[in-house]
Design a protein around this nucleic acid. Structure first.
Lengths: 233, 233
DNA sequence: ACAAAAGTGTTATCAGTACACCCATGT
DNA sequence: ACATGGGTGTACTGATAACACTTTTGT
């Protein structure tokens, strides 16, 4: 069977999310794409990625392509799914291990761009190469469901943030307004936000406290063997 | 880069779960293993699997190896995770796309066995080849968390079943007792159980109704793009 | 009649939601 | 002083859990 295996090629791709203002100024999800410069599907936009080097870890390959296309380092990186339909790439059998990543918004604002790299709003993707439209849709679904039960929203922010900023992230990802009072209590109750002791002055209203995300204590708690799917409903 | 890819080999493996009585008669999770008949790790027990043929779908390859080792057809089959650590297989770079499957318990009772196939309790695995112990642990974690929010328990049962039988499945998977009264209401409230109109007679107590699992209606509901992780806490 | 499991009713608790209201700041 | 978000209080609702109780069968 080893000779069979040689005819299957393995790629690693990444769906990268960052928050950026849309034309009205509201923050929404954006994702960077790269233009294909060779066949097949030359000229179409596609997810960043490439063949897996034999001596590079899967996650490292995802982080590397992320860095080479955007110049950024992910604050969150997790395997999404492996796509391997026989006919997904014309001519060859290509299996793609796809990762999804969250990058800090203010870093993303000055991310590398160029003729072959383009950021687009995640909810209005152009036609992409291969099955990449379906992959982005799945990544979006995963981000939106996971934000509701896992503490990942802070990955879009810097090391310290106000509860209003954190709430804006949730609102942008979930595309719905959240009650500030209840949001505050829920977040505090999670026990994973620590006050920095500082406040943000300068605005014509009560200055908000700054928080820092507290890494959950190692010893206790329900562990997630890898990156962790989680249940609901 | 294409020449790089040729040095990476792609395998598909499956973690198979069925319920079988343990030495006390209580149903617990079992999983079939195959003995490695060639190097590396020759002689050790491992997950069923093999190289991915270039023209076979990933899921079909998982179903095929499941069938060839156990003679069974899965009632539930889902991609688990892709394992690709550089050093996970001595000598070569092997990336394994791993699936997990649930098979009907009474079928599993008369499943194929032989000198190179062995069923073992999922919670007391022997030392396995490669990183397969970690893979089984992850699959167990996924099964146990997913049973709590998704309707998959019926995959261990036949086409019709009583609520007590369904509850036994939950209790075996979750390893804890459930309140029969509340369990009944929760299941009925899910709207996915349909009465068959029949009952099971012959026991010295009130005869229980038989139910059938009702496939959720296609049109409505929150869809799961692929197989669907789900959240909690 | 009795044991045993099927099935129903009732109440407590808790998380999530809606919304009224007070607090602290810059202009 | 006043507008604006930051932050607190409180009441309603729905899902879950605990457990008492009634029903229906075979022996």
């Amino acid at each position: 069977m080893p000779q069979d295996a040689a005819a299957v090629r393995l790629a690693v791709s990444t769906v990268i999310f960052a928050l950026r203002p849309d034309h009205t100024g509201q923050p929404v999800l954006w994702t960077p794409l790269v233009r294909r410069t060779r066949e097949p599907q030359r000229g179409l936009w596609a997810l960043p990625g490439g063949w897996l080097p034999p001596n590079e870890e899967l996650e490292a390959a995802a982080a590397r392509t992320l860095r080479s296309t955007t110049g950024l380092t992910p604050k969150y990186l997790e395997q999404l799914y492996t796509f391997g339909d026989v006919d997904r790439s014309p001519g060859a059998r290509v299996v793609s291990v796809v990762y999804w990543a969250l990058v800090q918004s203010d870093e993303a604002a000055q991310a590398t761009a160029g003729p072959n790299v383009r950021w687009v709003p995640a909810d209005t993707m152009p036609r992409l190469a291969f099955d990449h439209n379906a992959i982005v849709e799945y990544a979006l679904w995963r981000l939106r469901t996971k934000v509701e039960y896992a503490e990942i929203a802070h990955a879009f922010l810097g090391p310290t943030f106000t509860l209003a900023e954190l709430r804006e992230v949730y609102e942008a990802v979930l595309r719905r307004r959240l009650d500030p009072a209840n949001f505050r209590r829920t977040m505090i109750a999670s026990g994973r936000l620590a006050e920095t002791g500082e406040r943000v002055a300068g605005a014509p209203h009560r200055p908000p406290k700054l928080y820092r995300y507290e890494t959950p204590s190692e010893g206790a708690g329900s562990r997630e063997p890898f990156m962790g799917e989680r249940p609901a409903s």
